[in-house]
Design a protein around this nucleic acid. Structure first.
Length: 989
RNA sequence: AUGGAUGUAGCUCAUUGGGUAGAGCAACGGACUGAUACUCCGUGGGUAGAGGGUUCGAGUCCCUCCUUCCAAACCA
């Protein structure tokens, strides 16, 4: 069938029962098999299978002469089904990958998974517990093997779920942090920190779970309400240091000499570890005397206490004091000068354990919101306490063992538990409280329910405990010569952040910068099993310091062993001998058995993926993750890379918000407001999910739910129909009959202009990751400019003109240009539907829209003067439409072809513009009279008073073929038609 | 608690350096029946989170407060 033959259909004869002749079969009506209803849930899997067969990803790699573009995938954790956040993230990545490819790059995407870590290890331990197995009796490498199998299972599940979303990538060969090669590289990267001297063993209180017997990272801690003991404790003042020029003995302090500093704490068990008391120089303190109290009260009449003024009332109420007086104010200088005794000082049976002096220090962390204004300070059991201890050289205590009990030799309290192995409170608190009461140091006690740290996994309360841990010093000059961005990790990171200059959205820059500015040294060690070990050896130097073995040959043996056997090699029998072979001091060295923080694993993906793989390029063009990754992957990758490469491993960072429900609340099982991606795919199809992403503003949190998905599907349907119409119009158009731009009507040239403008906007939008902007522009164009304007006007020419009319051929030429651009421009977003559209026009085993690039769009298509002119023509058209609407409402006409309005235009330039085109054609009326002067009073107007329309009915007879109402209908060879249709019919014979 | 974000029509978003708050979708009404479970035309709809301030004039600049989210398991 040629382009010049109208398609005959079976119904035409059945239709031909009206009065006159029926010419429907002589029209070029749209014709397409493309279904109006997409049926995405059923059909998407077919396209996926097709892409698999076509090996699309690898075909694209084979295109030569393209500049590589690498989006480096942040690895999801392999322990469950995908949720909507994963879907959002991977769909956005897919839009980046596909658009970069179609913009002309060689766009590579290697998906990855994070495999090590506590969540998986815990799952396996749970399985052990269910079987009554004790995990401590299971060989480490057996446990690790089970963890590996667990991760492998979920990788397979998630891979299928990601592919179902339509994501293109190297799914057969992803990167895994647990592959032997990755484990070897992670160890090598770690050993760089060993060799450059930034790794050190420190003693630091960390959040410690006595249940899991491990230190937890901040990321592994959650806060829940917990009821704690509260105690108010006397620290007797026993002396003072000289203040400035005064004589320097106790007499200077007068009554303070006999007073007690009162502290308040919610952790009585830390009292035995007290080494100081802190106050805030900005808080007003006073000396108070108890004047009235019950007989047996702990706080006795005559006692004198140092307290913050603001908290006096509260303290005395708690202490059941009935009367008190303020003796005088106390200055910060005085507070700093005094010295206290530990409340357990000199007790019988204590063996002098607590006979040291307790100094007073100013501290910014002290507040007068609660307590007494004085903070009891145990350097081994709190972050602020630790910092004060470091600053003032206080000794660290080691009284609390890893199971949460006091060391056996501690007087009075040895063997008592803070929390026991099930996370329940032990006897340490009551014992300390009893002892304080017994010695008269306690003036009040109570209970307090407050937000308290708990283990994210066991939900057991945590303690701060002083433990040996391995740290990376982030403010130490590395001396590795990679100093372009700074000499320390922190300097390099902060400079990288600014010199990168590409943050989408820009707020991401500030967030990461603030976090890295404030963060302490990186705690790398975890006392767990499922991970990459800290591959180093230490020996104690006797003074508490540790020496780390720095031996390139040993390091090389470790890396080689990991490459062949995986990190299990570290935990295998004979490992130490294997790695230290040839060293005659092997007995001096001890293997570290801690494993690395999993953030070090994922922070090293740039090394074993971007640097080492054949398809990798270092640094990445872009990282793209949720906002939580400022604390996570963006952060750890930055630190790791600044320590090993001297700069960030990425050139740009895109962050997106979190998916919330329709009311902006976070999704949770208890609220029942979860939108599961699998459900959306089942009900609507993955393209609807992808469209939801494109319609949302990812720079803030996104909302999703039934109503939003429904409206997303509505938008989809509208767009789909516009594309369907193009397919129908192009039906069997022959490319050979195309028309040059110069010979096209202005309407067509206006469309080409719009395309040229859009071409720039689409390319810029994709390059800046502005999917919402791209889609909105394309959607508005397709619906407002094409469907409601251009297509509507051109239906007449397309259906009724002679097949070879210039006007018709020009329209189809433009339609073809539209088709190629819209399908490719939308392909990164609606990956399935655009393939559907493309294949409908270009079927074939090797055909796919995803093998195409965005078409080159000639710059000559741009014509700003024409655009300005047509903008005023469209303004005039809106007024005509308005006038027709009135006539319609009054039931004067139905179809606009029944009208022949008079259009008044006062502005001469605008009148000239309108005169130069066929305004009746543009308004889809049978005729239109232009009057180049101000409209009469009765004319219909919109905003512009110089444009008016007076409605007139079209005179003449309705052409039976094109339905225009014209005077010449009936005067031609074919019955009941106009001149144009008569000639078109003649051409068909 | 603290730090970082956020709030404009029922929904998704514009409003870039203060100057009469705009689109699309939805809703409602109408037309067409040659895009037909489509298409076209039209209508209504807003205390811009709340309060205060600066200004001739504030969604926009400043302050206070509030919502929700992230930093903090399941987390992108």
């Amino acid at each position: 069938m040629s382009a010049d033959t109208p398609r005959e259909t079976a119904e035409t004869t059945a239709d031909a029962q009206s009065d006159g002749p029926n010419y429907k079969h002589t029209l070029f009506l749209p014709k397409t098999e493309f279904p109006m209803r997409a049926g995405l849930p059923k059909r998407e899997p077919e396209w996926l299978a097709r892409w698999e067969d076509l090996k699309i990803y690898h075909r694209l790699r084979a295109k030569e002469g393209r500049k590589p573009f690498v989006l480096h995938d942040g690895p999801p954790y392999a322990n469950g089904h995908l949720h909507i956040g994963h879907a959002l993230n991977k769909i956005m990545k897919d839009m980046v990958v596909r658009s970069a490819q179609m913009l002309g790059h060689d766009s590579r995407y290697v998906p990855g998974w994070d495999c090590h870590g506590l969540p998986i290890e815990w799952k396996i331990e749970e399985q052990y517990r269910e079987k009554g197995k004790n995990k401590d009796e299971v060989p480490v490498n057996d446990l690790r093997a089970e963890c590996r199998r667990f991760a492998e299972h979920w990788i397979d599940v998630q891979r299928d779920e990601f592919k179902r979303l339509g994501c293109i990538g190297n799914w057969e060969d992803p990167y895994l942090t647990m592959s032997f090669e990755a484990e070897a590289v992670i160890a090598e990267e770690f050993m760089k920190f060993v060799m450059n001297g930034s790794l050190y063993r420190g003693s630091k209180p960390v959040m410690w779970s006595v249940v899991e017997k491990t230190a937890l990272a901040e990321a592994e801690v959650e806060y829940h309400d917990h009821t704690s003991h509260t105690i108010w404790v006397k620290f007797p003042v026993i002396g003072g240091n000289p203040i400035s020029s005064s004589e320097g003995d106790l007499r200077n302090f007068g009554e303070i000499t006999d007073a007690n500093v009162i502290i308040w704490t919610t952790t009585p068990w830390t009292i035995p570890q007290n080494r100081a008391v802190c106050f805030h120089p900005g808080i007003a303190y006073g000396l108070y005397k108890v004047t009235e109290a019950p007989e047996e009260n702990w706080a006795k009449v005559g006692d004198t206490y140092l307290l913050a003024d603001k908290l006096v009332e509260e303290v005395f109420t708690a202490a059941r004091v009935e009367g008190y007086e303020k003796l005088r104010a106390v200055t910060p200088e005085e507070l700093e000068a005094i010295t206290c005794a530990h409340p357990f000082r000199g007790l019988d049976g204590a063996g002098g354990e607590w006979d040291y002096d307790v100094p007073m220090f100013p501290g910014e962390h002290v507040t007068d919101d609660a307590g007494t204004g004085f903070v009891h300070t145990a350097p081994s059991h709190g972050a602020d306490d630790y910092n004060i201890g470091v600053r003032h050289n206080l000794p660290m205590t080691h009284n609390v063992l890893e199971d949460g009990s006091f060391r056996a030799e501690l007087p009075f309290f040895g063997g008592l538990f803070t929390f026991d192995h099930k996370g329940r409170e032990g006897k340490a608190n009551p014992a300390v409280i009893d002892k304080l009461a017994e010695t008269g140091a306690l003036i009040a006690r109570g209970k307090l329910t407050h937000s308290y740290p708990h283990s994210w996994r066991s939900k057991a309360p945590l303690i701060f405990r002083n433990t040996p841990q391995w740290f990376v010093a982030i403010d130490k000059p590395l001396g590795d010569g990679m100093d372009e961005y700074g000499t320390t990790i922190r300097e390099r990171a902060l400079n990288s952040i600014d010199k990168l200059g590409a943050w989408y959205p820009k707020t991401g820059r500030n967030r990461l910068h603030a976090m890295i500015e404030q963060r302490p040294d990186w705690v790398l060690s975890r006392q767990r099993a499922w991970g990459v070990p800290l591959t180093c050896f230490v020996r104690d130097l006797g003074n508490g310091e540790a020496e780390i073995l720095r031996d390139e040959a040993v390091n090389a043996r470790i890396a080689e062993a990991f490459r062949t056997d995986g990190a299990d090699a570290w935990f295998a029998d004979g490992a130490k001998e294997r790695f230290l072979a040839g060293r005659n001091d092997a007995d001096d060295w001890e293997m570290v058995t801690d494993i690395l923080d999993v953030w070090f694993d994922s922070g090293s993906t740039h090394a074993f993926t971007l640097r080492d793989r054949d398809d990798g390029v270092w640094p990445a063009d872009v990282y793209l993750e949720g906002t939580d990754q400022h604390r996570g992957w963006f952060h750890s990758s930055m630190l790791q890379s600044c320590g090993t490469r001297g700069r960030a491993p990425y050139k740009a960072v895109v962050t997106h918000g979190f998916a919330l429900d329709e009311n902006g609340q976070k999704m949770s099982k208890s609220l029942g407001n979860i939108t599961a991606p699998q459900k959306v795919i089942e009900q609507y199809g993955a393209d609807i999910l992808r469209l939801w992403v494109a319609l949302s503003d990812y720079s803030v949190d996104l909302r999703i739910g039934p109503e939003i998905l429904k409206s997303t599907a509505d938008s989809y349907r509208r767009l789909r129909n516009t594309l369907r119409y193009m397919l129908g119009a192009l039906g069997d158009w022959d490319q050979g009959s195309s028309v040059d731009q110069d010979h096209m009507p202005e309407l067509e040239r206006w469309v080409l202009h719009r395309l040229a403008v859009l071409d720039g906007e689409v390319r810029k939008g994709y390059a800046e990751y502005d999917f919402q902007g791209v889609f909105q522009k394309l959607f508005t164009f397709a619906t407002s400019h094409l469907s409601a304007f251009y297509f509507d006007i051109r239906k007449d020419a397309l259906y009724c003109d002679a097949g070879d009319s210039m006007r018709r051929r020009a329209a189809l030429t433009v339609m073809d240009a539209l088709f190629h651009r819209l399908t490719t421009w939308l392909a990164p977003i609606l990956a399935f539907t655009m393939e559907d559209v493309w294949l409908s026009r270009y079927p074939g085993d090797d055909s796919s829209v995803h093998l195409e690039d965005f078409p080159e769009t000639p710059s000559e298509w741009r014509d700003e003067a024409l655009a300005a002119k047509w903008s005023s023509i469209r303004a005039a058209r809106r007024v005509v439409n308005g006038a027709l609407e009135i006539a319609r409402r009054d039931k004067v006409i139905g179809a606009s072809l029944e009208a022949a309005p008079v259009l008044y235009i006062g502005d001469p330039d605008m009148a000239e513009a309108v005169r130069s085109v066929d305004m009746a054609e543009l308004c889809i009326t049978s005729a239109l009279v232009l009057a180049a002067h101000e409209p009469p009073a009765e004319a219909f107007r919109l905003d512009d008073p110089a444009i008016g329309v007076v409605f007139e009915r079209a005179t003449g007879t309705k052409c039976q073929r094109c339905w225009k109402v014209l005077d010449d209908v009936g005067n031609h060879a074919h019955e009941g038609v106009c001149r144009r249709c008569d000639q078109a019919l003649a051409g068909l014979e």
